[in-house]
Simulated scan of single mutants.
Amino acid sequence: MMGGTRPQSEETDQPGTSGIRFLKGNSLSELVRHEIEAMIVAGHFAPNERINEMSLAAQCGVSRAPVREACRALAAVGLLEYIPNRGLFVRQMDEAELREVDIARGFAFGAVAWSLAENVTPAQLHELRGHILGMDEAVAADDVSAYYPLNVAFHSALCEMCGNRRLAGTYQGFARELHVQRFRGLSAPASLHLSNREHGQIVEAVAARDPQAAFDAARGHVMNGYARILEQRRAMEELQAGESAEDPPP
């Protein structure tokens, strides 16, 4: 209807479809990459889940070529993993690699918070507190699917505000590798409440313009998140082991 607002259909509300059918040119594979990454962030894929290029192409309204190119780019940054003769899978890190990445991510995020504490503005503090209020609503609803994208946005806002693009890029590179693990870690009981309480501690340290306290709060938040990931992973392993034990022998 001309002059009015076009209602969204169920199809365009689905992840991966927004605007893609109407875009052409060199940016298409990059847009598809962002859409697939958004699906991973939103928890639409489980660790070790196989990526079906044909299904993704249908969801995005594109051919397989840009999907294949997008998946290669995501494999290059560690979100997906190619297994010869089997295909592409959502990457599941082992505990040793997970620890290595999270230790590095913790120091990077601590440095981001340190830098911001030295130069933060009232407008930036207002924005950060707004992020926390938004996450509080998801915590109250116990909705990890709503919380996680807001969590990512909060971390990204800190990076953008810190004034050091190289440092922010280093942190984001580590964080991108861990989307699936971080989402699953927040599924553990009470994790959302604990996570957002730690966000508040980071912001208050930044507001106090105390770089060391901001560093400690931000690094501690990442390492607490690492512990939550391990807790949830072990809970899932115990659940799967229990289900296997209950299966009758063939």
Rank of each mutant, 00 (worst) to 15 (best):
R86H: 12
G87N: 02
L88D: 10
L88H: 11
R91P: 06
Q92C: 08
A96S: 13
R99K: 15
R105H: 11
G106N: 13
G106H: 03
F107T: 13
A108D: 13
A108Q: 10
F109K: 06
F109I: 00
A113G: 07
S115I: 01
S115Y: 09
A117R: 04
N119Q: 15
T121K: 09
A123G: 14
Q124H: 03
E127S: 06
E127V: 12
E127L: 13
I132Q: 06
I132R: 08
D136W: 06
D136I: 01
A141M: 12
D143K: 02
V144A: 12
S145L: 01
P149K: 05
P149M: 08
V152M: 05
H155G: 10
S156D: 15
S156K: 14
L158F: 00
L158S: 00
L158G: 03
M161V: 05
G163W: 04
G163M: 01
N164C: 01
R166L: 12
L167I: 02
E177Q: 14
H179L: 07
R184F: 08
R184W: 13
G185N: 10
G185K: 07
S187M: 09
S187I: 03
P189G: 03
P189W: 00
L194E: 14
G200P: 07
Q201P: 00
E204C: 00
A205F: 06
V206E: 01
A208D: 12
R209G: 01
D210K: 02
A213F: 09
A214E: 06
F215P: 01
